[in-house]
């Protein structure tokens, strides 16, 4: 693989990995459910997009592989936010209150 493509692939993969990792740290450390949800849903969608794009660059011109990668990407793009949306809605309906800061007095 030529230098340029290698660098591009690396950039995609590493930034995706970075996003995924920060998301996981956020899920572990944030104080309540809604902030955790925020951390996970955003970084998951973006990070998996980046990593799959990196894989797409790795699959040099095998069309079936590339098509499958695009399908996985579309699938994650549709299902990830939808599942998170449904989850938040369910949480809100069941009366889980977001943890707010100090009341402004």
């Amino acid at each position: 693989m030529e230098g340029f493509w290698f660098v591009l692939t690396s950039v995609f993969l590493i930034s995706g990995a970075f996003l995924i990792f920060t998301g996981a740290v956020g899920v572990l450390r944030f104080p309540d459910f809604y902030t955790r949800m925020h951390a996970s849903s955003l970084t998951d969608t973006m990070g998996s997009g980046l990593i799959l794009t990196g894989c797409l660059l790795l699959a040099d011109h095998e069309w079936l592989v590339m098509a499958k990668l695009v399908m996985i990407f579309l699938f994650l793009l549709l299902t990830g936010p939808t599942a998170n949306h449904a989850l938040v809605k369910a949480a809100l309906h069941s009366g889980l209150k977001p943890k707010l800061g100090a009341e402004p007095s």
């Binding site: 995924i20 998301g23 996981a24 899920v27 459910f33 955790r36 949800m37 996970s40 998951d44 990070g47 998996s48 990593i51 799959l52 894989c55 790795l58 699959a59 990668l69 996985i72 994650l76 990830g80 599942a83 998170n84 989850l87 369910a90 949480a91 889980l96």
Partner: peptide
Amino acid sequence: PSFYDRVLAVNMFGTKTVLLIALLGF
């Protein structure tokens, strides 16, 4: 601690597994 946290974690775990399998394949 709450039920929804667990669901969230499971969902996240699943997404990570998808990525992991794709990467392992490559």
